[in-house]
Amino acid sequence: MNKLRTLFHPIFVFIGVQIAWIGLMVIWVYWYFENNLKLEEFAEKLRPELFNNEFTWVILLEGSFLMLIILAGVYVIFVYWNKQARLNRLQSNFVSSVSHELKSPLASIQLYLETMKYQQVSTQEARDFVETMLTDTERLSGLIDNILQSSKADPKAMRLQFQPVDIGEFMKEVLTAYKRQFEERKCAVQLDLDGAGVLRVDKRALRMVFNNLIGNALRYSPVGAPLVIQVENVKKYCQIHFIDRGIGIEKKDQKKVFKKFYRAQNIDTQNIEGAGLGLFISREIIKNHKGRLDVESAGRGRGTRFTVSLPR
């Protein structure tokens, strides 16, 4: 049964169709040379005025040209169909991973609320639970922002409201919200803001980018791994580096991670939640700031460096 399914795999069907067409074309050309000449001789005896040599070459070329057009047509249909099939697959993966990712913070919130309902908790414990729940709601709202942003028909038409922002102060503000998560993951953050200055950016959009990059660094690093955030000025750009010592990204995945819904599939990532949206959205946002978002990694297990370059 599996063999049969492999046989009907789109690529095999496509190759089969191509072989069939080329075969037909070869047979047609062969037939043309073999039989048509004989027919021609026969017909020439009856109606010699019907044939002249130049005309037959036109027919051969026309036939070949038509065959080629059909080949090209099949190829185009195949390419688009394949693209669509890939999108459908990604979309269904996305729905399952996003629902999974939404459920985790939700489960945590429900657990703490029910704990407060059913158990006797002290004021201190209650405050701690509320803090935890607030962190979970932040996570939920970040994810929902990502989904909404990515579902916009044309991310290029993103409406950004640029305003002067002190990147150093802004980064500190963003990091405050992560204080608790850094503590829980025993993550030491080294902040190097030497090159930070005032840039014209959309605060809300940039916060999403920073949240995605910091969130990823936490998610894809083991407990206790540090995070370095560095701001420096390079020529006309202000570069913000996010350097983690996490699971890293293989060379082959380094370009693909920015694609919508794409998630690197390997043994390290298979049990880590993610919707495949964060980096896609972040790159779109940075592009709309006329900047760049790049990734560097020495490979699996060797950490990752994301660099946001924004024009000064």
């Binding site: 985790s104 158990q119 414990e125 979970d136 829980e184």
Partner: peptide, 26 residues
Amino acid sequence: DETHLAKGLMFNLEREGYDIVVVDNG
């Protein structure tokens, strides 16, 4: 591996009188 969930589970199960050990990976 979800620290929040793990902490919440630990709190409740300890309240029920169980002895709890938490680990975050397989």
